[in-house]
């Protein structure tokens, strides 16, 4: 091991900041507590809901027990959002791994 160089320290510090700047919630692990699937609203209604947000839908799918949506908002930002399959309530929204919206009282860990 050689002596530690300043660029290396700056690099490590920047990386550390980046890793701490975002909330640690794997989006594959969002839980919606949505119950049996036969009570879920159809995906077509989810699409309408996304449209009503003013978003442009790219992809809608089932992720765990949630509806997950990839979309762009009016500003052109890429969003990944989770909706409750029964109420179609918007629960949590990420932008490139950063949480930018969370419904009041919602706990993504279930």
């Amino acid at each position: 091991m050689k002596t530690i160089r300043p660029p290396l320290v700056a690099f490590a510090a920047a990386l550390g900041c980046a890793l701490m700047a975002s909330p640690a919630q794997a989006d594959g692990e969002v839980t919606c507590n949505s119950g049996p699937k036969d009570k879920w609203k159809p995906m077509a209604e989810l699409r309408k809901k996304v449209w009503a947000e003013g978003w442009q839908l790219e992809k809608a799918l089932v992720q765990g027990d949630c509806y997950e949506v990839y979309a762009r908002n009016e500003a052109g930002q890429v969003l990944e959002a989770f909706f409750h399959p029964v109420t179609l309530k918007k629960l949590i929204v990420y932008r490139r791994g950063q949480e930018i919206f969370r419904a009041k009282g919602f706990d993504p860990a279930g």
Binding site: A18, S22, G76, Q77, V78, R96, G97
Partner: peptide, 19 residues
């Protein structure tokens, strides 16, 4: 996927992107 330079610049500051 991003289509415009503006959209790319807009998210350049996000940690997941600049890394």
């Amino acid at each position: 996927d991003m289509r415009t330079i503006a959209a790319m610049l807009d998210e350049l500051g996000l940690p997941g992107i600049w890394t």
